[in-house]
Simulated scan of single mutants.
Amino acid sequence: MEIAGEKIYPIGLGTWHMGDDLVKRTAELAALQTGLKQASSTVKIAIDTAEMYGDGNSEELVGKALQSVSRENVYLISKVYPWNATKEKLPQSLAASLKRLKTDYLDLYLLHWPGEVPLAETVTALEDAKKSGLIKNWGVSNFDVSDMQELWQLPAGKNCAANEVLYNLGSRGIEFDLLPWLNKQQVPLIAYSPIAQGDSLGNQFLQDGGLQEIATRHGVSIFQLLLAWAIRDEKTLAIPQSSNKDHVLTNLAAAKIQLTKKEWQKIAARYLAPTKKQPLAVL
């Protein structure tokens, strides 16, 4: 898939909840390094973090992982708190993130969710950061259709390079209106929690015999099947989180799964698309 002309592997690395526990840090670092080492000069591996995640702990962990690979092969995404998205505070937040990440630029900088700071002010600050070379592109996260429409009315609003929202087989609400709107405007989707945090969101995927039948036929796990489903339109970047290096490799391998049209239809019939507007799901 592509974001702002950059070719990116459709499955990347999420880092929410990573970097907080010192006992887990060695395994977490190894997992991120394993994933990033799969990148190449032709197709980048994305890694997604935020100043919110552990109040910077995640960014520090990502910064360490970046030291083991070529920075040019990584598509680095971070996010700014809404209350830090002013003309005065955004440059300070960005500088702090870059310091923790041990890099001099971000590939993509996202407004983490809509806040009280006027969107026009935030876009101006993001455009200034882009002109300075500290970020290559900017986007948004947790924006619903009305938020995107407001953004599109701003002079530089259409420079938005992506929208990151919750999306998985058990949470298809965006397919009614937001996803069609993004597709029409050619705005890529970044799907967080693409495997619904395992079965923790109550979807019970592992107990679904129909999914297991399809997964077994292709020699993959149900979670790999969920990832393949999330990126099926080739316009979506999925960012599953894993602290296990073997799981990271199996996550990345899910991008190579090819299902038949009948199999896609069978999955869709078991987890129905929305038939009316739903509130934007968030975690």
Rank of each mutant, 00 (worst) to 15 (best):
Asp107Phe: 07
Ser68Thr: 10
Glu28Lys: 12
Leu101Arg: 07
Gly54Pro: 05
Thr103Glu: 07
Lys79Trp: 00
Leu76Asp: 02
Thr86Ala: 10
Lys44His: 03
Leu61Val: 01
Val80His: 04
Leu36Asn: 02
His112Cys: 04
Ala30Asp: 14
Leu36Ser: 04
Leu94Gln: 11
Gly35Asn: 06
Arg100Pro: 01
Ile77Thr: 12
Val43Lys: 13
Gln92Tyr: 09
Tyr53Gly: 00
Ala50Val: 00
Lys44Arg: 15
Tyr75Gly: 02
Leu32Arg: 12
Ala96Glu: 07
Arg71Cys: 04
Ser93Val: 01
Leu111Val: 14
Ala65Ile: 12
Leu111Gln: 15
Leu94Thr: 09
Ala96Gly: 03
Asn73Leu: 03
Trp113Ala: 06
Arg71Asn: 04
Val69Ser: 03
Glu59Ala: 05
Ser93Gln: 09
Gly115Arg: 14
Trp113Ser: 10
Lys87Glu: 14
Asn57Ser: 13
Glu28Met: 11
Val80Thr: 15
Ser97Tyr: 01
Lys44Pro: 02
Tyr109Gln: 01
Ser58Thr: 01
Asp55Asn: 14
Asp48Phe: 02
Leu111Trp: 13
Leu76Ser: 04
Ala30Glu: 15
Trp113Glu: 11
Ser70Met: 06
Leu110Gly: 02
Gly54Arg: 08
Thr86Ile: 12
Asp48Thr: 04
His112Ile: 07
Leu61Trp: 01
Gly115Ser: 12
Lys89Gly: 03
Gln38Leu: 14
Tyr75Trp: 12
Gly115His: 13
Ser40Lys: 11
Ala85Arg: 08
Pro114Gln: 10
Ala50Gln: 00
Gln33Tyr: 10
Lys37Tyr: 01
Thr34Ile: 07
Glu59Met: 05
Val80Pro: 09
Thr103Gln: 09
Leu108Phe: 10
Ser97Val: 07
Tyr81Thr: 02
Lys79Tyr: 01
Ser40Gln: 06
Leu36Glu: 03
Gln38Val: 08
Ala96Leu: 10
Thr103Arg: 12
